[in-house]
């Protein structure tokens, strides 16, 4: 039998593999394949395929901090005061930074990476009577998906 499980990189994954080995599956009957979520990106920083969401968050923080200083300063002569001025400017700045990245991404027709893709595939060859135990171990240690083939 062949059992295939897809996992995220996690301590659970290593627990699953260790428990499988202790449950009588020899190490050589396990095949572990690390999966890439995107083709190998070239090294220079400006790679466009990187996570758009986190780029937006980063630009958001940068703009929020800059505007917060200005908002707090001008708040000293405004009726609403420096604390409210700083906070409002920070929220506005985050929106601006995040928005710029979002509009930019739409222009370039970039799509954010789907979240929670499996990152490691575990393939186990085992005898038929072992397969229920293998399935159970994979599910116990948070496999994302598990499949069984009579091969």
């Amino acid at each position: 039998m062949i059992v295939i499980g897809a996992f995220r990189h996690s301590l659970d994954l290593e627990q699953a593999l260790s428990v499988l080995e202790r449950s009588g599956i020899p190490r050589k009957q396990l095949l572990v394949v690390a999966m890439d979520g995107e083709p190998d990106v070239p090294m220079p920083y400006s790679s466009r395929t990187k996570d758009l969401h986190s780029q937006g968050v980063e630009l958001g923080f940068a703009c929020a901090t800059g505007l917060a200083v200005i908002g707090a300063s001008t708040g000293f002569i405004a009726p609403w005061g420096p604390i409210l001025g700083g906070l409002a400017a920070a929220i506005l700045g985050f929106g601006i930074g995040f928005g710029i990245r979002w509009i930019h991404a739409r222009r370039l027709r970039l799509r954010p990476m789907p979240k929670n893709l499996p990152e490691v595939t575990v393939i186990v060859r085992c005898a038929e009577h072992q397969s229920p135990r293998v399935l159970e171990i994979m599910w116990t240690y948070n496999a994302m998906t598990v499949g069984l083939a009579d091969a």
Binding site: H9, L13, E14, L17, R27, K28, Q29, L30, L31, V32, A34, E119, V120, I123, V124, R125
Partner: peptide, 18 residues
């Protein structure tokens, strides 16, 4: 974390006969 785990698993299951 992901990179370290990948290094570790690649080494540990290198001799797979599957």
């Amino acid at each position: 974390f992901a990179l370290e785990q990948r290094q570790h698993l690649t080494g540990r299951y290198r001799s797979s006969e599957v």
